[in-house]
Design a protein around this nucleic acid. Structure first.
Length: 478
RNA sequence: GGCCUGAUGGCGGAGUGGUGACGUAGCGGACUGCAAAUCCGUGCACCCGGGUUCGAUUCCCGGUCAGGCCUCCA
């Protein structure tokens, strides 16, 4: 099975072939750490984490190098640092830690590298110097600018004819630019702002150069896959590409460009600047990270996604269904003597469903199709459990867990998934009530049994009578 | 003004030139002391108008609507 990926540059899905299958390189544009990140920031995090996992599954755990940068030089960081009267590092460290914690809660693996602009200054200034030497950049009015005329293919990635862009532009062009599309590589810092020394004078890097320099430093150019949000195609990635090619790396930058669709809140675009926020940090207080991860993967990554309460609830329900199968089948296996367990049998249906998950993911990360296969696999486990097919349950269960965990899902203990909110005291209390209710039921004292259920209900606990006794779980919040 | 996406059932959301995924919600039934879960059954769609075709939700053209980018928001 080959991996095919949609490439923004060629606008079609292509078979993916890494330059070196022992060293597959992936770079994704990361956050500016000046505040808690909203859930939309985590869509690319989760999407490209999934790609990272699929690549590792295909090429080997250590064969994939994944770099996700952190922008820690930025006006918003400067403003916040000035507000609090602290160095910018205090701000960026604080919110980077929060960001990483949220990403981990959403099931994202740590990238191989997480470069920061402040730790890449030498590479940035060296890169700019290289561009100047190649006559692809020029100094003007204290700035160093990239000369877009030096790159004939400028506009190709985003599919924008440059002359039309300029004709329709609504922005005033800085007078020192030779061409309206030229962009800043290095600029002087304003008084009081952080500044770094360079051959072009003290200042700070422009937006686009940092990614190019970080890629060069962390992975080496060219790379296999470059990813990010669709909104970055122009100008950010277009500019990265221009810089990267003109600095000379065999005139190659990235083989595949991948872009995830936007996350929308209701009908409004979700953006911190608009103030229409849903911080992952807050969402994680009420929802399991796995449910949020599922919700982010509920649609194909290239499609826009509407972020609504319904979406999260449906994601939670879907996971409940899978965890219920895992829980029920685990209880069934606990009741089977070890000696009676066997591992024979083909269980073709389960194997096929497992393979269907893989092939769906390898087809440009078709997560909805992968979810469908996951449910199919769960149905096999369910019917094996009902049919008391021990080998079938064991095989199906391990395939389900394997497929789910490849997607960063089904990582919780099934019982903990349902009883997660309870501490030991509460568990003991619940067990005692359930035992009392069991006695009442045995005596066919239904009013007493129902009274105890009401008590449990008040504790937000739901009891479920089964053939092997009662089980329970924490009820959904309204 | 320029460029680019998308339009599928109550909701979410794949996919396909012809037997209409999957999840969730609805309805009927089984099971259960009741309930939950589970199982069985069932209803529900492919924006509009042309064209190509034996046949289009799927291909082509036009339209409408929605969204994105062109301002260092992923």
């Amino acid at each position: 099975m080959t991996l095919s990926l949609y490439d923004t540059m060629t606008r079609k899905k292509r078979a993916f072939t890494p330059r070196n299958e022992h060293r597959v390189t992936l770079y994704v544009c990361g956050p500016t750490v000046y505040n808690y990140a909203h859930i939309g920031n985590f869509r690319p995090v989760v999407v490209f984490d999934l790609l990272f996992r699929v690549l590792r599954d295909l090429y080997g755990q250590d064969a994939v190098l994944y770099a996700a940068n952190v922008t820690d030089v930025d006006d918003k960081i400067n403003a916040k640092a000035a507000d609090e009267g602290v160095p910018i590092g205090v701000i960026s460290d604080r919110y980077l830690a929060a960001y990483n914690a949220d990403a981990a809660a959403l099931g994202a693996l740590k990238p191989t590298f997480q470069p920061r602009v402040t730790e890449t200054m030498e590479a940035i200034t060296a890169f700019i110097a290289d561009l100047v030497a190649q006559k692809a950049a020029y100094a003007a009015d204290g700035h160093v600018l990239f000369d877009t005329q030096a790159f004939p293919d400028y506009g190709k990635l985003s599919g924008r004819p440059m002359d039309e862009m300029i004709a329709g532009a609504r922005v005033d062009v800085a007078p020192y630019k030779r061409h309206p599309a030229d962009f800043v590589l290095w600029k002087p810092s304003k008084p009081g702002e952080p500044s770094w020394d360079s051959a072009f004078g003290p200042g700070r890097p422009g937006w686009h150069i940092e990614c190019t320099a970080m890629i060069e430093q962390a992975l080496g150019l060219p790379i296999d896959i470059h990813g990010g949000g669709i909104d970055l195609v122009f100008p950010h990635h277009e500019n990265e590409l221009a810089q990267g090619v003109c600095a000379g790396h065999g005139h190659e930058y990235a083989d595949v460009w991948m872009h995830n669709g936007f996350l929308n809140m209701g009908d409004e675009k979700m953006s911190k600047s608009v103030g229409n926020v849903a911080l992952a940090h807050d969402l994680l207080k009420t929802w399991p990270g796995e449910a949020l991860r599922w919700a982010l993967l509920a649609g194909h990554y290239r499609q826009p996604l509407e972020w609504t309460g319904d979406l999260i609830e449906q994601a939670k329900s879907a996971l409940d269904r899978l965890y219920r199968v895992l829980d029920d089948s685990a209880r069934f296996l606990e009741g089977v003597p070890t000696a009676a367990r066997a591992s024979g049998g083909e269980h073709r249906g389960a194997v096929e469903a497992h393979d269907a998950v893989l092939s769906a993911l390898r087809d440009d990360l078709n997560t909805p199709l992968a979810f469908a296969a996951l449910f199919q696999l769960a149905d096999h486990v369910r019917s094996s459990t009902t049919g008391k097919d021990v080998a079938g349950v064991e095989r199906g269960r391990s395939l389900l867990l394997e497929a789910g965990q490849l997607m960063g899902l089904l990582v919780a203990d099934p019982r903990a998934w349902f009883q997660g909110g309870a501490d030991d005291d509460m568990k003991a209390q619940v067990e005692a009530l359930i035992a009392a209710r069991g006695e009442a039921r045995a005596a066919k004292d239904w009013p007493a049994a129902d009274r105890i259920r009401d008590e449990l209900s008040a504790l937000k606990v739901e009891v479920m009578d089964g053939p092997t006794g009662a089980t329970w779980r924490i009820k959904e919040q309204a």
